[in-house]
Amino acid sequence: MDSQKLVISPAPHVHGSNDTRRMMGDVLIALLPALLVSVLAYGLQALVVTAFSVACCVLVEWFIQKFMLKGASTIGDLSAMVTGVLLAFNLPANIHLGLVAIGAVVAIGIGKMTFGGLGKNPFNPALVARVFMLVAFPVAMTTFPEAAGAVTGATPLAMAKEALKAGVPVGEVMESVDLVAMSLGMKSGSMGEISVVALLIGFVWLLCRRVISWHIPVCVLGTMALISSVAWLASPEEFMSPIFHLCSGGAVLGAVYMATDYVSSPMTKKGMVIYAVGIGVITMLIRIWGAYPEGMSFAILIMNSVVPLIDKYVRPRRFGAVRNGK
């Protein structure tokens, strides 16, 4: 630029260090421990699926942006990469790569770009793809390879559900489940959901970097814990314990990484709490009484659709608002 010409712009003239790219980068970093665990559990296959999923998502976004929306490339903001990793984390490690590609097209193409790209999608793109695949390819999506150290190929949640349906008492079911091993990653499941500990390490990172606030994850997990505790205390013979619920399936992955997706979550802290409690309730309803063993993805998608309504009616606390009775 011509150094003689002064730049004129409205205030403020400085900007915080925060930008979309940095925040998405932080999410990717936060997902690394979980990726590591899944590689340890499932071998290189896990890495291949993740890398392929990321590549597909980025490619699809680039293609649509360039040839269909005819806009400037948006892959630099890394959001497509985050969607790619999250999608992979929702898949079994031994899934056919062709299905991954389909998932990527659904996630980015249908879940995100049809609405106009980043910031305009009402639903979490990775979850749109997951649910689509769960319905379209139920067998491929629920057949998990044996993780190193895990007992069987079925997820603990699915196992428990089947067993309870068959009338096996909870005590016996619990015996077959090693909670410590489960939380470390020695269980079967989607790639990303196997290690609660690794996911929580990422959560701490996100909190430290102020990428997300604690409200959504804590309220989702808290609600789930509360409902399962009530059920469990009322009838421990019939229902699984709250710790089992929190450590199994996509509870942590969903609460920390999927429900907190900026675009599809509410704008205010109060709204976030309502949204998160809703997710927790719906998840537990599906887990306890629904047909599917896991309800996290459905719960998040359902609450995603409520977000505009929440944003309309839940407003932030305003400075100097004249409160009733004061």
Binding site: N18, T74, G117, L118, G119, Y262, M267
Partner: peptide, 11 residues
């Protein structure tokens, strides 16, 4: 860029 609804401004 475009608004990603991160709510940083609200915060």
């Amino acid at each position: 860029g475009s608004c990603i609804r991160c709510a940083k401004c609200v915060e």
